[in-house]
Structure formats: structure tokens, C-alpha cells
Computed example of a mutant assay.
Amino acid sequence: MNRKVQEASTLFQSALLQEKYQDPEGAARTYQRVLQLDPRNKLAWYNLGVIAQRDGRTADARESYDKALKIDPKYASALYNEAILLKSSDTDRAVELLKRAIAATPRASTAHLQLGWILAQKHRADEAENEFRRAVAADPSLLSQVPEQFRDNVSPTPNSSQAGATG
């Protein structure tokens, strides 16, 4: 491993600790130093995006997520977070990003849930129901977050394994 990459890795670990100990500004500065050494570090770009998103700096967050996605177009976490940023302002782009996140990680329950919410808002009930069903199948604890009008159709039935059984 060359010296720059090794130094970037050490700095990255330091930035993670700074975040853990509630120093997002220090972490952001350290991630910037990581990127000076290793401009293709998708995790540093992603984490800068998370910090910016947390601080309400949506343009900076999008820019960081986009840079992470230029390095790895299938990076599901960056796809998901950018979709969340856009779900109220650019639903079509949010849908596209969530579909890409799901393609990269098919059992991404929260991506299915968010996609279901957007599709429901777009009055695409059948597609929304399918996404809610996938979300709950992957993580049954998400059922409470499914809109009420879809819950009966997406909830796992306790006796589904006994379907067709006679008593």
C-alpha cells in the first residue's frame, strides 16, 4: 500500500472517531484531508454528504453524494441518501435513485419503503403496494410505517405457512 493511501486510511479512521465523538466540523476537515490524498475515496465523499445533509446544506450534500456516485455508480447508501434529499423537490429523480439503490441491494427495506411512499403520492397505488410489500417482507418492523390504506394488503399473515392446510 503506498504512503498516500495508507495516510488517507489512517485519517479516515480519525474522521470516523471525530464523528462518533460529536465533532462533525472536525470530521469534515479530516475527510477533506483524506480526499486531498485520495480523491477517489467514495466513503469520504459519502460521509461529507451525510454531515452536510445533517447540517441542512442540501446542495453540498448532493454534490458530495454525486462525487461518491461518480466513483461507484452502484453505491446504495449514496443513492438512497440523495433520493431522500430529493423526494420532496424532484420525485422523478428520487424514484430513479431509489430504483438504482434497490437494484444494487434488492433487500434494502427502507429503500422499498421510501419508493412506496413516493409512488403512493404519485397515485401509482399498485406499484406503491408492491414496494410496501417488499419492504415489509425484508423487515416486518416497517409495517407500522406503511400508510394505513396499504397495511392489510402488505402485512405478512401469521398463518400464511399453513395456507391450504386442513384442520
Rank of each mutant, 00 (worst) to 15 (best):
D139N: 15
R57K: 15
K20T: 06
H112N: 02
L16D: 05
T91I: 07
K42N: 06
D72E: 14
Y75W: 06
I102D: 07
K74A: 14
Q114K: 11
T58C: 01
K99W: 02
L69S: 05
G116A: 10
N2V: 03
N153E: 14
D66M: 04
L16E: 13
V136S: 08
K70L: 13
A76K: 12
P106Y: 10
G164P: 00
S109A: 15
R100F: 02
A52R: 13
S141K: 13
R54Q: 15
I84D: 06
S155Q: 15
Q145F: 11
W117M: 12
A83I: 07
A27M: 09
E19N: 13
Y21G: 00
L85Y: 01
N130F: 10
I102R: 08
A128E: 10
R134V: 01
R107M: 05
Q18C: 05
R3K: 14
D60P: 05
T166E: 09
Y31T: 02
Q36V: 12
Q13S: 10
V154F: 10
D38H: 05
E25G: 12
Q36F: 00
N153C: 03
P106K: 10
F150D: 12
D92W: 02
K70H: 06
T30F: 08
L16P: 02
D55M: 11
R29C: 01
R40T: 09
A165S: 15
A108V: 01
Y21R: 08
A44P: 07
S141P: 00
G56K: 10
T157L: 11
T105M: 11
I118E: 11
D66R: 14
R93H: 05
F132C: 07
T10K: 12
P73A: 09
F12L: 14
K122W: 01
L48Q: 15
L16S: 03
A111G: 05
A8P: 03
D126C: 02
P73Q: 02
Q18F: 01
E19A: 02
G164N: 04
P24M: 03
